[in-house]
Nucleic acid binder design. Structure first.
Length: 894
DNA sequence: ATGGTAGGGACGTACT
DNA sequence: AGTACGTCCCTAC
């Protein structure tokens, strides 16, 4: 139906049933208001139930379903099913009726950050939904006006769910899928994909007079396996009356699959990407429906493939007579081609119907392979699935070889069924010619398989396997326009905060803008500064910091959710009454665990968890939450992150600096760490500061025991690394990497005199400590802008005449004067310098032995984090006033 | 009861 | 302290 049709008044009717809250009454005037509305509508649109909840006459309740029943089934019977809110108990109540769960459908058909009704109404239907917190409901029962309002919200929710169903064309699509496969519509609506393929194959094999495999329940399988084992033990070779291949049933249970689903066989080939930013045309070619095509190309079927008894991958069939599977797929493809041809001349509602039909045909063809590899499928055929993926890998590899070796083109990436070719051309029409040539050459080799041009990228940033972005050139009526495509990057993932994603997306758009390197860097820096400022001023909405994660299992599946903090939270929310129906697939706020490490070993970094003795108390069955404790928990990730930024700092110490109760951040760190002065830097870091005039870092050489100054220009500390020392032992406490900073007194060759980052880091720490306890009283430095001379007052050597003041010893090159600074700022400056060197040393990227993070940026980052933490504290405090804290781990990376 | 594998990345714990 | 390895989540295909 068109929307205009079902939205017509009178097409749909509704009613609301209302009951009192426990121990409550209906507000004054409500009864009359409801009666008025009913008489106005001509029917009972509002009816209220003054008696106990759910007291339905025993002859009535089963009318919900089409099966007449006298005993109410247990509604919670069975697991609180995967993803769905309806348990088998509930399903049995509505037997014979179709249940369309728009939450499940939306999750299947759409890509959204959240699948809440509010979010979907906004993005799909462009409608605002009012959210009512459960805690507000009692208040709304207090007067007639607000109660009617509440009723309206409830009715709106029902309406929105239904509108969503129409919007997503759930019914037409599932009906088509069901018609194609010949299964039950109700099952398709539940999302039983494997069953659709099962029925499709059942019908096809039955029509050809094959005997189909038996269907085993999982219980039967277990029984059979144990029985078989017993038989083996007794060396009893008696024939089992339920005979099935040993390899197929036993192996999944025997091997790793017992411990939750490792892959059972190998899948698609992913090429190692040639990373980089490409700015000339890139061709994206991919095979159309690779796996269905392979089945047809090589005639892969139960009826054709000869399986080897040892469970190895079978050989390709030599049988030329088409098997059933290829025939079935061929049929689906042909039907789809026909539907698509009708589509060209169709109009109106017919277009929509045909389009859905072709979608359904494609979905069916594509899901066949997956079910061959599905261990619980009636048609489970691991050898076939393996053979198909093996062919896929070989086809991709041979295509790459052809393109590279015979056509002399550069393949920069490819995944399962696609290759990307860097043309190196500025001219799109020439690039297209190349694409045409490749397509021609590749397609020559195959009968059914077909490679095609899937897109042309103008620019592309290739970062890692499955992580890239590109400017895609598309055409509308012949005129080109550009779209940015993002694959696998942070901003397409749901588990990053909005702030981080927006910022990342902006940076990406700049990088792909084609502007000069300087402009791009400038503009990215500007945006980072802007965000930093916004965060400091509290202009970033709290929601942008929030991270949410989904549950893959129902909360009940985790009895003591030690390693699933979000699940633990979900359980608590449920118990506290705020969330009534939390189930797998729900998105829950991510809050860190209350558990502390087991204490038996040190953990990576200093991210120990806080624990408070009064964590949760129960009083008359109600949960009492220590707000301060939760506050500490909320901030703890932030604090830990900061600590990780500046090694050697304890959460407690940092909490102290941020004005928090440090006892709630107590970790097992040693006293020495707690006294580390680097924490003091946090309050003083200023990105405007320069370190000119700071006391240089003194490094002692491990070989000759002599000392020398670390270069005062910090970028020169950021040297590349000369490689691993030969005796570097994995697992030892020494670093595997070395700066090419070299002791000037030791010979250049050999191992002597090389300085490791760890050594520098230790020197920095020691010197910073010494500095802070002894020498901070006075610093003398030259006031000449270009001069770097600094000295401590304690060992001052002065050149010049005392009447004119103290002259810089760099005389005669320098005419500056030495000024004595006693300010605290200088202390911070010096410490900042140490910190700077320290962090520089820590910024070694072990992947390609290059230092990636310029020191200035690191400082900006630390400062931003400190500011963020401080403002977060306040925001969290505000939030706590309402009860549950919803702010999550902050992972904004500047 | 309710298709597949490959892979990145965060995080936690055990081990050396 | 550093590493190895497993779990979880989400994505690409």
């Amino acid at each position: 139906m068109l929307a205009s049709e079902w939205k017509r008044t009178g097409m749909l009717s509704h009613f609301t049933v209302l009951r009192k809250l426990d121990g409550g009454i209906f507000p004054m005037g409500f009864t009359k208001e409801a009666a008025d509305r009913n008489s106005k509508a001509g029917s009972n649109v509002i009816s209220f139930e003054s008696r106990q909840a759910c007291r339905v006459p025993s002859n009535m309740w089963s009318k919900l379903g089409r099966l007449k029943r006298s005993v109410m089934p247990k509604l919670t019977k069975g697991n609180t099913t995967f993803g769905s809110g309806a348990s088998p108990g509930i399903m049995s109540c509505i037997a014979g009726r179709l249940l369309c769960d728009t939450f499940l459908c939306a999750r299947d058909l759409l890509k959204e950050v959240s699948y809440s009704l509010t979010q979907l109404a906004k993005t799909q239907l462009n409608k605002d939904r009012k959210e009512i917190a459960p805690r507000d409901i009692p208040r709304m029962f207090q007067n007639s006006g607000s109660l009617l309002e509440l009723i309206e919200y409830g009715e709106t929710d029902a309406w929105l769910s239904m509108e969503l169903m129409f919007h997503l064309s759930v019914l037409p699509l599932t009906r088509q899928l069901t018609n194609i496969s010949g299964n039950l519509w109700g099952k398709t609506l539940q999302g039983a994909r494997a069953q659709r393929v099962e029925y499709l194959l059942l019908h096809a094999f039955h029509a050809k007079k094959f005997i189909v495999p038996d269907k085993f329940s999982s219980q039967l399988k277990v029984l059979k396996v144990t029985k078989r084992k017993l038989n083996h033990d007794a060396e009893d070779k008696a024939i089992d009356d339920l005979d099935v291949d040993d390899a197929e049933i036993e192996s999944p249970h025997n091997e790793q699959e017992k411990t939750r689903k490792g892959p059972a066989y190998s899948g698609g080939l992913v090429l190692e990407p040639k990373r980089g930013l490409y700015d000339k045309y890139i061709l994206l070619l991919d095979f159309n429906s690779l796996y269905p095509s392979i089945i047809q190309e090589y005639n892969i079927c139960f009826t054709t493939v000869q399986r080897s008894p040892d469970g190895s991958v079978p050989r390709l069939p030599s049988n030329k007579r088409p098997g059933l599977l290829p025939e079935l797929l061929k049929n689906l493809v042909e039907r789809r081609r026909m539907v698509k041809s009708w589509l060209k001349t169709a109009s109106g509602l017919k277009v929509q119907q045909l389009d859905i039909q072709q979608q359904a045909l494609k979905l069916t063809a594509n899901s066949m392979y997956g079910c061959l590899g599905f261990s619980n499928s009636r048609f489970y055929a691991k050898p076939l699935a393996e053979l198909i993926t093996l062919q896929g890998r070989e086809i991709l590899q041979s295509t790459v070889d052809l393109v590279q070796n015979n056509l002399n083109l550069e393949v920069i990436y490819g995944d399962t069924d696609s290759i990307m070719i860097y043309s190196g051309l500025d001219d799109i029409s020439k690039a297209k010619v190349i694409a045409g040539k490749v397509i021609q050459e590749v397609n020559k080799k195959y009968r059914c398989l077909e490679i095609d041009l899937d897109g042309i990228y103008k620019r592309m940033l290739l970062l890692k396997k499955k992580k890239y972005a590109a400017v895609k050139v598309q055409f509308k009526d012949g005129t080109p326009y550009e779209v940015i495509e993002r694959k696998g990057l942070d901003m397409v993932r749901r588990d990053w905060s909005l702030l981080s994603k927006e910022l990342g997306d902006f940076c990406l758009s700049q990088i792909l803008s084609g502007g000069s390197c300087e402009d791009v860097v400038e503009s990215i820096h500007n945006s980072l500064r802007k965000v930093q400022e916004d965060m400091r001023n509290g202009q970033v909405p709290l929601e942008k910091y929030v991270i949410t994660k989904s549950l893959t299992k129902p909360p009940e599946a985790y009895p003591d959710a030690k390693s699933q903090p979000h699940v633990e939270v979900a359980l608590r929310l449920k118990k506290s009454g705020y969330v009534t129906g939390c189930s797998a697939g729900d998105t829950v706020p991510y809050i860190i665990s209350c558990e502390q490490g087991n204490g038996s070993s040190s953990s990576t970094g200093i991210a120990q968890r806080a624990r408070h003795p009064d964590e949760l108390k129960t009083d008359n069955g109600k949960w009492i939450i220590d707000i301060e404790y939760y506050l500490a928990q909320q901030i703890h990730p932030v604090v830990s992150r900061l600590c990780a930024s500046i090694q050697g700092t304890s959460p407690a110490r940092l909490a102290d600096c941020l004005g928090l109760d440090s006892s709630k951040f107590q970790s097992k760190s040693s006293e020495a760490v707690n006294n580390d002065p680097s924490i003091l830097l946090l309050c003083a870091v200023d990105d405007e500061e320069r370190y000119r005039g700071c006391e240089p870092l003194v490094v002692s050489c491990p070989s000759c025991s002599g000392t020398f100054d670390c270069p005062p220009v910090f970028s020169s500390v950021c040297l590349s690394i000369s490689g691993k020392p030969t005796d570097a032992q994995a697992g030892g406490s020494t670093s595997n990497f070395w700066c090419n900073l070299h002791c000037p007194k030791c010979p250049e060759e050999g191992e002597g005199g090389r300085i490791s980052p760890v050594l520098i880091a230790n020197q920095v720490k020691r010197q910073a400590e010494r500095f802070i306890t002894t020498y901070y009283k006075g610093l003398m430095m030259c006031d000449d802008e270009t001069c770097m001379y600094t000295t401590r007052s304690l060992n001052l050597r002065v050149i010049g005449d005392s009447e004119r003041g103290t002259v810089c010893p760099n005389y005669p090159r320098c005419n500056g004067r030495l000024a004595i600074k006693y300010t605290e700022a200088d202390l911070y400056k010096q410490l900042t310098y140490f910190c700077h060197v320290f962090d520089t040393v820590r910024c070694l990227d072990k992947v390609d032995n290059k230092i990636r993070i310029p020191v200035e940026k690191e400082l900006v980052r630390i400062r931003a984090l400190v500011e963020l933490a401080a403002s977060t504290v306040q925001k969290l405090r505000d939030r706590c006033a309402y009860g549950w804290v919803q702010l999550k781990d902050l992972t904004v990376t500047i």
